[in-house]
């Protein structure tokens, strides 16, 4: 069995190849389970992708130590997610919403809108900036690797470029907020 540290290294070094290997080994088991428990192949894919996103974030964020293989862990997560989904599909709203609930929902919606505005601006950054920011802040690739991928001669150059990209994002988000409040 691969250690979590080795798996993390593999995901950082070659995400596509590592995820493809995990996909090939695990998805058939997940599909079989979901289809045997009232779901479709599409349901299986959705659940598996949700599990892989959780898995990626936990492994690269070093908040998970695997005590079994990655496939065993993922199948376990998928089973839980699918059980939750089945229960969500059959559940009926038992209580009516109070004013307090509505207030909380409105606050959550505002926060979500702010995040979505940032998301929109991320999509408008050039490919290079978007790649650098996502590589560092989401995919958690080391700056050495980002420098090599984008052909910066030094890690310092890559670091400066990363902050330039962050500044661009910040300025566009601020401009959006100013326009919205004007």
């Amino acid at each position: 069995m691969e250690t979590t540290a080795a798996l993390r290294q593999a995901l950082l070094a070659d995400r596509e190849q590592t995820l493809t290997g995990i996909y090939q080994r695990t998805f058939p088991m997940v599909r079989r389970y979901v289809q045997q428990h009232g779901g479709s192949a599409q349901d299986a894919k959705d659940v598996f992708h949700d599990a892989l996103v959780i898995f990626y974030e936990k492994v690269v964020g070093e908040t998970l130590v695997l005590s079994a293989s990655a496939s065993t862990y993922l199948v376990g997560v998928c089973r839980n997610l699918w059980r939750q989904e089945l229960s969500r599909r059959t559940r009926q709203p038992a209580i009516s919403l109070t004013d307090e609930h509505t207030e909380v929902a409105e606050e959550a919606e505002l926060a979500e809108q702010a995040t979505l505005s940032v998301l929109e601006q991320v999509e408008r950054l050039g490919e290079r900036c978007k790649d650098i920011l996502l590589a560092f802040y989401y995919f958690q690739q080391p700056l050495e690797q980002i420098a090599a991928t984008h052909q910066y001669r030094t890690v310092r150059s890559a670091t400066v470029q990363k902050f330039k990209c962050l500044e661009r994002l910040r300025n566009s988000v601020r401009a959006l907020v100013s326009a919205a409040t004007a």
Partner: peptide, 17 residues
């Protein structure tokens, strides 16, 4: 910005999957 980048990163990972 970091929250937005998290959401954008998840979307990117889902596209790759």
């Amino acid at each position: 910005l970091y929250q937005g980048l998290q959401v954008a990163g998840r979307q990117q990972l889902r596209r790759e999957l």
